[in-house]
Amino acid sequence: MTVSSVRLTARGICHGFHTLSVLEGVDLDAAPGEVTVLVGPSGCGKSTLLGILGGLLKPDAGEVRMDGSLSPDCLNPITYIFQDASLLPWRSVAGNVSLALEDSRLPRAERAGRIAEVLAQTGLSDFARAWPRQLSGGMRQRVGIARALAVHPGVLLMDEPLSALDAQSRALLLDDFAALIARAGVTCVYVTHNLAEAVLLGHKIVVLSRRPGRVQATLALRRPLVGRHIEDPDLVALQHQLWDLIRDDAARAEREIADAAD
């Protein structure tokens, strides 16, 4: 296993949409080879912050920096796993993975090798020629993971990748996620509203306040990803601690959403 040496740092991030302030002075430090989880109430700007970290949104103020060295075979320093997998329906599973490699100067044989490797890692080897519409939600998300791993990223950004899945698929994929992330040794930022996912996957959990999002607390969890169990008393206690931090803000955020709908 090679551990990424890339550190992702955000300083003083502010962002808004029109007159609505979404993020205010957010600092974040994603350490090399670690998973930093972002949690917070609905609408607190978790996904917006991830977009800014990934260079898909321009912040109104602040700066995101990437420091460290990439592995020589890295084809995309910052890579994304999207909530809806974002697969091209007109490409097969292998074609979707290949998409991430086609505009590199990777020789054809090496490209095919990488595709086969990540499909095997994600348990999709038998589905290489299947269309996305023929796959379950969990399998579609596996394709998204395979595509992201194929570029050997320095930083992996994940935007609620399990939120659209049913409970069984989520539980199964969560185990696979932990193993894949640990094996890839990549610097990760993982956005979720699910506190169980946060404690199972995070080395560091950053709690954002309700809108405008600010860093409310940062909790460290120094233990290997593989082997964590949701019924572990320490993890259960951590979930309670997180919920205590979020509960009031989450309730206020829900009321705000309901008021806005009225």
Binding site: L56, L75, T79, F82, D84, S86, L99, D103, V151
Partner: peptide, 14 residues
């Protein structure tokens, strides 16, 4: 879908 275009950009596609 704009998400597909964002995906392409996230993978540094020209």
């Amino acid at each position: 879908p704009r998400t597909l275009i964002r995906m392409g950009q996230a993978f540094n596609m020209p």
